[in-house]
Amino acid sequence: MLTNKDFFRGLRAGIPIGAGYFSVSLSFGILAVSYGFTWWQAVFISMLTVTSAGQFAGLQAMLTPGQYFPLLLSQVTINIRYSMMSVSLSQKADATFGRLWRWLLGFFMTDEIFAVAAGEPVVKPRFFAGLTVLPWLGWVLGTLTGGLLGSVLPQDLMNALSVALYGMFIAIVAPVAKKEKPVLLAVGIAAGCSCLCTWLPGLKALPSGISVSLCAIIAAAVAAALFPVKEEDQ
């Protein structure tokens, strides 16, 4: 019975994440449909990837035929942070977190699920399993709702909802950039580089997936070289 208690404790911890995901994936569904995808195509993307920034970049790359390598590169660059989270959480997983659990539940490693799980002294597989349920459901149902209603909603409203994902990104980045100066430096370099890639005649030709990856790698590498993170900062 103790194990079921862990599952329901995880389920409860996932409520706010699920609600937040619903509102953000709503705008993903709307955006996908406005790009010409069908609602079920958007839903499949959400069901199988469960990653805001990655899906968002993926949509843009999918619009151009034959852009498989830039798509892969953008996915790897954007989602490499999950590898770091997985490495970090694997140190906290308890003895019952066997190989099969890890292969199954690793699928659900999102920023917010990681953040909640990392707050546990020891991560049990049933707690983690419970934690993933509502965020995944919220993400998929939000996409479905956005995809279906996107074509019905007035243009002004769709317009407004299309900035929800960016709003979430700003909410993740700004507080940390305010607290950690090296992060602010990385943010400044990434923003400057990204503007150059959008506006400079020569660089404009780069596919957006490539320029995002390139700018992020340059910014993170400069920050890492100038300000190595000390053990206790992480």
Binding site: M84, Y166, F169, A190
Partner: peptide, 19 residues
């Protein structure tokens, strides 16, 4: 380790500005 610490913020910024 440092690169992995900075990369999420760099990616999200590059995706947001100026898009």
């Amino acid at each position: 380790r440092s690169f992995l610490h900075y990369i999420p913020y760099a990616v999200l910024t590059a995706m947001t500005v100026p898009a």
